[in-house]
């Protein structure tokens, strides 16, 4: 199971890298979406997979009697999901604003901040 998940994570990273290399910002954004989810999967694998019981200790024992699942990765993944959701929401709005302002999402055409022509008066900021 672990091996299968590892290969899945590797495949997803490959897909997201391919998407992120695109000049189109929407493709890049989907690449980021896939990559954040893949990293969550990686955290899950890093906490070791167990076909096990929930991490509860019976009242009369000090340690659990059977192997139990690791609760920490779930907390980490939950945090990471919330954070990446916020960042992705911001990025989506930003990409939309860029589309409205520049009428293109091709990153080669977005050169306002770093103009190509290096004219002597060509770099006025505002």
């Amino acid at each position: 199971m672990t091996i299968l998940l590892c290969w899945t994570a590797g495949g997803l990273v490959a897909i997201s890298v391919y998407l992120m290399l695109s000049r189109q910002l929407m493709c890049w954004l989907f690449g980021i979406v896939i990559l954040t989810s893949t990293v969550n999967l990686v955290i899950f694998i890093a906490g070791r997979l167990q076909t096990a019981n929930p991490p509860f200790v019976p009242a009369h024992l000090l340690v659990p009697s059977q192997p139990v699942a690791n609760p920490l990765p779930q907390a980490l993944i939950l945090t990471a999901i919330v954070i990446s959701f916020g960042l992705l929401a911001f990025t989506l709005v930003l990409v939309r604003k860029v589309w409205q302002g520049f009428n293109t999402l091709d990153s080669d055409n977005l050169r306002l901040a770093e103009p190509v022509s290096r004219g002597y008066h060509g770099e006025e900021t505002h």
Partner: peptide
């Protein structure tokens, strides 16, 4: 212009945090 600047900032920093 700051939309363009922010976009480039966001792109590389998002990848860094991931």
């Amino acid at each position: 212009i700051q939309l363009d600047g922010t976009l480039k900032y966001v792109v590389l920093n998002l990848i860094a945090t991931i």
